[in-house]
Design a protein around this nucleic acid. Sequence first.
DNA 1: CGTCTGACGCACG
DNA 2: GCGTGCGCCAGAC
Length: 120
Amino acid sequence: MKKISWNQPKEKNEDFFSRVYDIARMIPYGRVTSYGAIARCIGSPQGARMVGWAMNQANSQRDFIPAHRVVNRTGMLSGKHHFGGPRVMQELLESEGIGIEDDRVVNFRSLFWDPCSELI
DNA sequence: CGTCTGACGCACG
DNA sequence: GCGTGCGCCAGAC
């Protein structure tokens, strides 16, 4: 697969990615957030799918990106198949004390971390 | 260039 | 609360 295609003058895109990774790194240990929340926070309320796409590239980043702390709006582990194995994402979350039941974060409502609202 | 796909989210019933 | 349909935007064919 191709290394990176954003060497092109897609400045807007690069900025989008930077913001996504920036926020993803801020997610506190033991907390989770959603793709849509990140998208909305960076001014692209309809770019939730792009956030997921960015998470797919998170592996390529130098710094560690806690992509396992990002789930969809219902708290479901929709990206668990992108962690090398179907159970890796769940195990990562459980190692942080987050309960998973039926591929869903237990008590998601309480563990949810809003990048913009709860950011100080 | 037309179509399909997808780590999403919302409206509707 | 759950299933379905649709809009969204970038990539792959």
